[in-house]
């Protein structure tokens, strides 16, 4: 089995509108990440661009449609398509979400939440086994941004993820914005969540922006919108975590209201500074 192996540097989510700027000169970017589903066509500009990026940079392929958190069986056709994309580009890492997005074969196009129970644990672990056996590589599982809770949950999310890792040998993609969003939404302290998180399994970190609204009672409700710079409290959690566990491949995700390349690249440089400074401190 091939293990996830991204450089311990900052990367960005690739957007086709940035291709001319990226291609114009070498970029100080550790890796690019793409959504697998955007590269499931037979050919055309998407593959031409990704093929070129792949020559020059490390690559992370991030699935958004496999529905690993569903209690129904995985879509084998979709898993085969993922295998084709992974075989074609041989990425350093493949990741997916702790969420479901398909029910009765209808694709809902959102990362939907699941209760954390022994039953869902068994089903998620089975699905991850199936993915890792098919792709012949370790996958990373990403913690979700959630807006509500299930009365039937019997496990904490961090317990659930710890047990998934123990049963399947998968790695984790720790999305710190999701931690901040979900912790705020559930009136918990993000630092407590991170203290319980099985950080030894983390092979990649995601950072992104969120927006703010309120729930029925007027309590803060944060939305994982990926449409702004990374917010200060998320940077602070990130810096503290890196100081604790050392450098980890870190992705800036910006999917909506995508800014100019220079703005996105500057966000990545800010993350890279934190990673480099940690290296220096550790060496000293």
């Amino acid at each position: 089995m091939k293990f996830s192996d991204l450089p311990r540097r900052a990367g960005v989510g690739f957007k086709p509108e940035h291709f001319p700027a990226i291609n114009a000169e070498p970029q100080p970017i550790g890796f690019f990440e793409v959504h697998a589903e955007n590269y499931m066509g037979a050919g055309g500009p998407p593959h031409a661009q990704l093929g070129k990026l792949r020559q020059d940079y490390a690559l992370s392929i991030h699935g958004v449609g496999l529905s690993i958190g569903s209690v129904q069986p995985l879509d084998r056709e979709h898993l085969s398509r993922l295998k084709i994309v992974c075989d074609r580009y041989e990425p350093e890492s493949f990741s997916e979400h702790l969420a479901w997005s398909t029910h009765d074969r209808v694709f809902l196009n959102d990362l939907l939440p699941l209760p954390y129970t022994d039953q869902t644990l068994a089903s998620v672990a089975d699905h991850i086994d199936q993915v890792q056996e098919t792709l012949k590589r370790q996958m990373l599982l990403e913690n979700p941004a959630t807006y509500l809770l299930f009365a039937e949950s019997t496990l904490e999310e961090t317990e659930f993820l710890t047990e998934v890792v123990r049963r399947t040998g998968c790695g984790l993609l720790l999305d710190i914005n999701n931690v901040f969003v979900a912790s705020t939404n559930h009136h918990m302290h993000p630092g407590d969540y991170l203290a319980r998180f099985p950080v030894e399994a983390v092979s990649e970190i995601h950072l992104s922006g969120h927006s703010e609204t309120v729930d029925d009672a007027g309590a803060p409700l944060l939305i994982d919108s990926h449409d702004t710079p990374v917010k200060d409290p998320v940077w602070a959690l990130y810096a503290a975590l890196i100081a604790r566990i050392g450098p980890v491949a870190t992705l800036i995700e910006w999917d909506n209201d995508v800014p100019a390349w220079s703005v996105l690249s500057a966000e990545a440089q800010a993350a890279d500074e934190i990673l480099k400074n940690t290296n220096k401190r550790r060496a000293a």
Binding site: N109, D110, A219, I223
Partner: peptide, 28 residues
């Protein structure tokens, strides 16, 4: 069976998912 920390009916919380589905697919 869906709840929120403050114990209220999570109408607006559930609406976030409803909105994501419609906005996402309409955008596609």
């Amino acid at each position: 069976g869906l709840t929120a920390w403050n114990g209220l009916q999570p109408q607006r919380r559930f609406a976030v998912y409803r909105n994501n589905v419609v906005v996402g697919l309409t955008g596609a």
